[in-house]
Amino acid sequence: MTSGSYFAFKTVDWANMSAATWETIWMTIVSMIAVAILGVLLGLLLFETTASENIWVKVLNAVVSFLVNVFRSIPFIILIMLLLPITKNLVGTIIGPTAALPSLIVSAAPFYARMVELAFHEIDRGVIEAAESMGATGWQIVYKVLLPESMPALVSGATVTTISLIGYTAMAGAIGAGGLGNLAYIDGFQANNNTIVLVATVIIVIIVFAFQFIGDFLVRRIDKRTL
């Protein structure tokens, strides 16, 4: 058997491959849930603090906005290293899928927060004002107007974020987080087995397509703006 072949499927340990696939999916979903919650909260904070007259609110907006920009600019691979001590404290280890979560969340949440802020800004100002004129409280406006009216944008933003998270899980895998990235790196690249790399790639592409499909489907279902 030639080493370096892409099609030596007999060399693939399918049990390992399947375990790695589930690790990737698990990391993606768990981190995405956290990113969605954090991102919506951060995005809401950014949205609500924009255009305020109050000096302290302005300062808060500037600080949050700055932090979001900083974390969005740090390359993911460096962010992992930067967060290693924190991860160790939080999770107790720096190896395995769970250890990847903090850096996945910290890198994607600011990214998603900006999308959320943008989605809120795209809501017709008049609709928010109409709700105000009906006597709605701030929170009622958030969960009865802002969230439902921006839902298609929130879901498509979450789809994009999920897909970049899948990419990040592979990168995190390369330095020990498990999943398909880890498998492709250790069993594929380091063992000079291109088949493993190819199979891992195909599975990742399928996962990406699946999330994209689900996202598009949900957006079409939710969006009632044009019928």
């Binding site: 017709d124 008049g126 609709v127 004002e129 109409a130 105000e132 004129s133 009906m134 006597g135 709605a136 409280t137 107007v145 439902p148 009216e149 839902m151 939710i222 009632k224 703006r225």
Partner: peptide
């Protein structure tokens, strides 16, 4: 807010929630 509930308002661009 209680008083606003007693003041109905309609708008040029309707301002309905599309959702």
């Amino acid at each position: 807010r209680k008083k606003r509930q007693k003041i109905g308002m309609i708008f040029q661009h309707f301002n309905l929630l599309w959702s």
